[in-house]
Write a protein that binds this DNA or RNA. Structure first.
Length: 210
DNA sequence: GAACCGATTGCCT
DNA sequence: GGCAATCGGTTCG
């Protein structure tokens, strides 16, 4: 069951919290990979200095003001891609950064994609495959060409994304400050499953249940 | 058009 | 723990 648009057309903080435990699937040609979301971060609009949307819409951030439930993919440090889910009703800016996954399917594909030189390298451990926003994009084969794709299965397309709700019972979720943020560093907008061994960083001492 | 810089990662000491 | 890699987006002149 795919998460409906109404799920994403809510406040970014609520969507971020509720995405922990959801299953992300990515299809590229015949290859399908999937993982359970264990860590995300919320990025808001004008009130959030750390957000790409903080200063209003620009060519890059305009997508954050658009319809919810689509991918916002950006290129960072000239090296990596990061995957977000656009939130809030159209006209209001918001996005949730996917920071870490527990790999569920296609682990061999992920490992090959993650290798710097694909030849003669040992297979990466499961916990290394998707434990960071840049790493999981590499493992899922996601780049700027995926920007704007809906989170809805369209299996006849070359590329598609899907998000399915957490299975029962939902995981425990805690909030901490976001990683790598200078402004507004204290805002507890990072949401994660503290019991997971697939996080990008340790939970941290300031974690609070939400 | 030039300068600055980043929601990261992996390799080096 | 330090730091380079390497590019596009954004801002400033």
């Amino acid at each position: 069951m795919t998460l409906p648009i109404a799920f994403f057309a809510r406040s970014t903080l609520e969507v971020a919290r509720d995405l922990v435990g959801a299953v992300l699937c990515a299809g590229k040609g015949r290859r399908i990979v999937a993982g359970r979301i264990v860590e995300v971060e919320a990025y808001l609009g004008a009130d959030d200095p750390a957000s790409h949307a903080a200063r209003g819409p620009t060519p890059r951030s305009a997508i954050m003001f658009g319809p919810p439930g689509v991918a916002y993919v950006y290129f960072i440090y000239g090296v990596h891609h990061c995957l977000n889910v656009v939130t809030e009703p159209e006209g209001r800016a918001g996005a949730v950064l996917i920071r870490a996954l527990e790999p569920l399917a296609g682990l061999e594909i992920m490992s090959v994609r993650r290798q710097r030189d694909s030849q003669f390298r040992q297979r990466l451990s499961d916990r290394e495959l998707c434990n960071g926003p840049g790493k999981l994009c590499k493992a899922l084969g996601i780049d700027h060409n995926w920007n704007g794709l809906p989170f809805a299965p369209q299996r006849r397309r070359q590329r598609w994304l899907d998000l399915e709700p957490p299975t029962w019972p939902p995981p425990q979720v805690v909030a901490t400050p976001r990683i790598g943020i200078r402004n507004a560093a204290a805002a507890p907008y990072r949401f994660l499953n503290p019991g997971s061994m697939f996080l990008s960083r340790p939970t941290g001492r300031s974690a609070r249940s939400v």
